[in-house]
């Protein structure tokens, strides 16, 4: 299983990406997807996403390989957008395919939890009044990642 990983400014197409994971095969019994969107908190004009080219892809690939080691994945896609995104815009897509639903659903949740704390992206919020501020890391994101640690 070779994960498809893309960092891009352009939007992604959930339908096309889903078809890409299942086209020409009949062994996929479950395809799970997560789409993260730019939430329009009061007065937010745009979210600007920055990343560390090279390290980002490496970090996501490592996380995807970890997922493939824990669940019997038949396919995995992670697409993360960067640049300036307006409220409502899709930011991140995680797709996982497996023979059965539990593996697809669990690995999809694992991947998005890990993406939040283990891949080098940074968000800056731009407000309608012209101010901007860097989003701070959240303790609950660390907790969400920690729940996947081996017991």
């Amino acid at each position: 299983m070779t994960p498809r990983i893309a960092i891009q400014e352009a939007p992604f197409d959930l339908g096309a990406e889903s078809a890409r994971l299942t086209a020409g095969r009949t062994d996929v019994g479950g395809l799970a997807s997560f789409v993260g969107l730019c939430r329009a908190d009061d007065g937010l004009a745009a979210m600007v996403l920055e990343h560390y080219p090279g390290m980002t892809e490496r970090a996501i690939d490592r996380i995807a390989q970890e997922a493939a080691g824990r669940w019997p994945l038949l396919g995995c896609t992670v697409i993360h957008r960067v640049g300036r995104l307006p409220p409502g815009a899709p930011i991140v897509l995680v797709l996982t395919a497996s023979s059965h639903r539990a593996a697809a659903l669990e690995s999809c949740a694992f991947l998005i939890d890990w993406l939040k704390t283990g891949a080098p992206f940074w968000k800056r919020e731009e407000w309608a009044d012209g101010t901007a501020r860097w989003v701070e890391a959240k303790a609950e994101d660390d907790a969400a990642t920690a729940r996947w640690a081996p017991a």
């Binding site: 390290m55 993360h80 080098p120 992206f121 989003v135 701070e136």
Partner: peptide, 10 residues
């Protein structure tokens, strides 16, 4: 070597 704040992607 890179320096940055705690990450906030996803």
């Amino acid at each position: 070597i890179a320096f940055f704040p705690p990450v906030t992607g996803g």
